[in-house]
Design a protein around this nucleic acid. Structure first.
Lengths: 335, 335
DNA sequence: CTGTTAGCGCTTTCAT
DNA sequence: ATGAAAGCGCTAACAG
C-alpha cells in the first residue's frame, strides 16, 4: 500500500526489523558516536525502508525538551509582525525548532491565554512581542517556562532577555528632522498606553523638543489604535481642534497612512501644510503617495536577534541578556 | 517562593495533595461526569492552589491527539498570508488548538521539510496554502497525517479537503471589465508555474478573451515572482517588448504595485495609457496611487473555512470536502 | 559497542 | 464513584 493510514512505525518496529535493541536505534537517530559504522548504516537503511520518523511527543516526554518555541504577537495581520515572525521562524527552523504563533488581538486576556497555551504544550522558550500585559501579570506567566525573550519591552534578566529598537532615539531623529525643516507645531500620534514603545516615543518626543527649547504641549499628544483607522480618527479630530499643527510624528506607518488620509479629507496638503513621519518602514511606506518619511526598523533582524537570545537562554547562557537595534530615518516625500 | 524554577507540578502531586488517585484528578481535568461533586470541587481547589497545568505532551503520548495544527505558507511576510493565518489561528484558538506556522520561501524542499517537521510533532492536522510541491510529492507527505486541508489547490478527497477562491472567475471578471472599457491588448502577468492559482488565472484569462472573440497571444502572458520586485521586472521587460499593451492583469496586488512602478519608470500613465488590475485586495491596494482596481478575496474567511474543514476531517467527517469562495471585482482608479 | 531496566506524565482498561 | 495496573514512544542510567 502506497499511503498508510497513519504512520504507526515506532522505534520498536525499527529495532525488531533491524534485529537490534531500541536503544541502538535511539543512538543512531540521535547521532551518538558509540556505534559501529556497520550497525549504524544497517539501522539507517531500515529506518529509510520503513519510513520511520521519531515522535517528538514521545521524545519530549522523555527529555522534557520539545524543540518547539512560541511567538506571541498582538496581530500577525499588522505588517510589522509578519517580518518579525519571518526573522524568528527562519532562524528557528535552522536550529530544528518549530514555532507556535499566537495572536492576542491587543487584548491582555488573550495574551495570557496564549501564554497558557504555550506553557501547556511545554515549549522550550517563548518570544513575546509588544506585550500588552502589566509586569505583575506577565512575569509570573513567563517564569513558569524555561526561557523567554521580550521584544520592545524591558524585563529583569531573571525573567527574560530583551531585544528592542531604540524608539526614543528614533522619535528624536524624527523631531530633529522636522525642526530642521522649520516645523514648529509638532504633534505626537502615539500608540496604546499599554505599549512600552509608546512610552519611549513620548519620552524621546519630549526630550527632543526640550533640547530645542520648545515646550511640549500635552494637547498635542494623543493616543490611538495602532492601525490606519486609528490614525485617521485621531488625526482627523486633532487637526480640527488644533489647526496650527504643521507636523505629525506617528506611532507607526499604518497610523501615518491614516494621518495621510485624514489630511486629504481635511484638504491639508502633505507635506506643504503638514509634514507626516511614520515608523517601521513597512513595505507600504514607500508605496503610498506621498511616500512616507519614516524611521526604519529592521524587523527581520529583530526577530532573528530575539531567537538568538532565546536559544542562548535555553542553553543556559544568560550573559548578553539585552540587545538594542538602532533605527534609521528614511527621508521620502511626506516630510 | 513566588516564581518556581520550572512548573514541575504533575498529576501525581495533585493527587497526593488532594488525597485521591491520579485517576480522579484525570477525571476532573477531563470533565468526566462520574464524580461526586464534593471531590471534584476539592480537587479543583488543589489544582488551583498548586497552579497545576496538565502537560499536553504527556496527554499527546497517551491519547495520540496533540490539539495542535500546522499551517504551511510560502511567505508570512507576503501580505496575503497573515490574513489567512489570522483567520485560521483565531478559529483554532476558539477550539483549543495551537498552530505551528511554517514558511517555505516558495521553495519545494522547504515545504517538504515543513511537512516533516509538523509530522514529527504529530500535529492533528495540517493546512497547506499555495503549495509549490507537485502532487506526487505532496500527497504522500499529507497521507501520513490524520487530516489535511489545501488552500487554492485541488486534491482527491482521500488526501485532503480543499478551500479555494475561484481564481478563474476572478480573472474573467477582470478581463470583462477591461474589455468593456475598450481595452484590446491585454497582458497577463502571472505567478509561478508551480502555483495552481496561476494555472486557473491563465485558464480564466484565455476563456474570457475567447468569449470576446479575441485570440490570446502567448507573448502577452509572462510569469514572475509573486511580489512587487517580480512584477516590476516582468512588466518593465514586457512593456518594452510589446509597447501596444494597454492593460495588465496581475497575479496579485504586489505584482500590480510592481507594474505601477514599471509604468512610472517607463512614463506610461495609469490608467490612461495602460490599465492595471491586481488581485486579493490587500491593505496596500487601496492606499497606493493610483488606487488599485482589484479582485477582492476574503482571506480571513478563507483561513477560517480551511480550519472548519480541517476540524471536520479530524473528527472524521469528510462530507463537505471542498469549499469555493467567490471573488469580487473592486473598481478603483487603476482600471 | 550494545542491551536491560526504569521512568517521563498522562489516559485507558479493568477492578472494586 | 474511585483505584490499580499497564502502556503511549522514547531516552537515561547502568550494565555488560
Amino acid at each position: 500500500m502506497l499511503y498508510m493510514e497513519h504512520n504507526r512505525v515506532t522505534i520498536a518496529d525499527v529495532a525488531q526489523a533491524a534485529g537490534v535493541s531500541t536503544q541502538t536505534v535511539s543512538r543512531v537517530i540521535n547521532g551518538k558516536s558509540e556505534l559501529s559504522p556497520g550497525t549504524r548504516a544497517h539501522v539507517l537503511s531500515v529506518i529509510e525502508r520503513l519510513g520511520y520518523r521519531p515522535s517528538s511527543i514521545a521524545r519530549g516526554l522523555a527529555t522534557s525538551r520539545t524543540h518547539t518555541l512560541g511567538l506571541v504577537v498582538p496581530d500577525i495581520a499588522n505588517p510589522f509582525f509578519p517580518e518579525l515572525a519571518r526573522g524568528a521562524e527562519d532562524a528557528a527552523r535552522e536550529h530544528g525548532y518549530g514555532v507556535f504563533v499566537c495572536n492576542t488581538g491587543e487584548r491582555p486576556d488573550q495574551e495570557a491565554a496564549a501564554l497558557d497555551l504555550l506553557h501547556d504544550r511545554r515549549v522550550d522558550g517563548i518570544i513575546v512581542s509588544s506585550s500588552r500585559l502589566p509586569d505583575d501579570r506577565l512575569h509570573p506567566l513567563l517564569a513558569r517556562g524555561r526561557a523567554a525573550v521580550l521584544v520592545n519591552r524591558p524585563a529583569p534578566p531573571a525573567i527574560a532577555s530583551t531585544v528592542r529598537v531604540d524608539d526614543a532615539d528614533g522619535t528624536r531623529q524624527a523631531v530633529a528632522h522636522l525642526l530642521a525643516r522649520g516645523r514648529r507645531s509638532l504633534a505626537l500620534i502615539n500608540g496604546p498606553a499599554t505599549s512600552y514603545s509608546a512610552g519611549e516615543r513620548a519620552r524621546g518626543f519630549a526630550a527632543a523638543l526640550e533640547t530645542a527649547g520648545i515646550v511640549a504641549r500635552p494637547e498635542l499628544q494623543v493616543r490611538c489604535q495602532p492601525d490606519h483607522t486609528g490614525g485617521f480618527a485621531a488625526v482627523h479630530a486633532l487637526l480640527a481642534a488644533q489647526p496650527q499643527i504643521d507636523a505629525l510624528v506617528c506611532y507607526n506607518d499604518l497610523v501615518a497612512v491614516g494621518a495621510l488620509q485624514a489630511c486629504a479629507a481635511l484638504e491639508r496638503r502633505v507635506p506643504d501644510d503638514v509634514a507626516v513621519i511614520g515608523c517601521d518602514d513597512i513595505l507600504l511606506a514607500a508605496l503610498v503617495t506621498p511616500a512616507l518619511t519614516t524611521v526604519r526598523v529592521d524587523k527581520r533582524a529583530l526577530g532573528a536577534a530575539a531567537l538568538d537570545l532565546l536559544l542562548a537562554r535555553i542553553a543556559g547562557r544568560v550573559d548578553h541578556a539585552a540587545r538594542v537595534l538602532a533605527p534609521t530615518l528614511i527621508v521620502r516625500a511626506s516630510a
